[in-house]
Amino acid sequence: MQSYSVLVVAAILFVLGLLGVLTRRNIIFILISIEIMLNAAGVAFVAAGARWGQPDGQVMFLFILAMAASEVSVGLALVMQVYHQHKTLDVSKLNNLKDDIEV
């Protein structure tokens, strides 16, 4: 039962992160929001692991951490390039690639 309440917390965290992705314009903040979501997933894994009394959940959490770190590092490298080229971190300015139908 306890693990379920942790799961609820994780879910709330996840949705918060999602809301952050939706509302934020700055790429860095979006990355942070995604981190929150990833961590929420991690929490859920830990909760699940706890429920079944297995270490697998925690193992997974470690993998998530590693992966999140690598993702963020690549992400930040790209952010720097974006800033170089666009002089902004506003994600809505990044729309050179889109459909333009010429009839």
Partner: peptide, 17 residues
């Protein structure tokens, strides 16, 4: 095609939505 194409506006936010 025009209608569908609207969704491809290049904005990340649209894609997330």
């Amino acid at each position: 095609n025009g209608i569908f194409s609207v969704s491809q506006d290049g904005s990340v936010r649209t894609y997330v939505i």
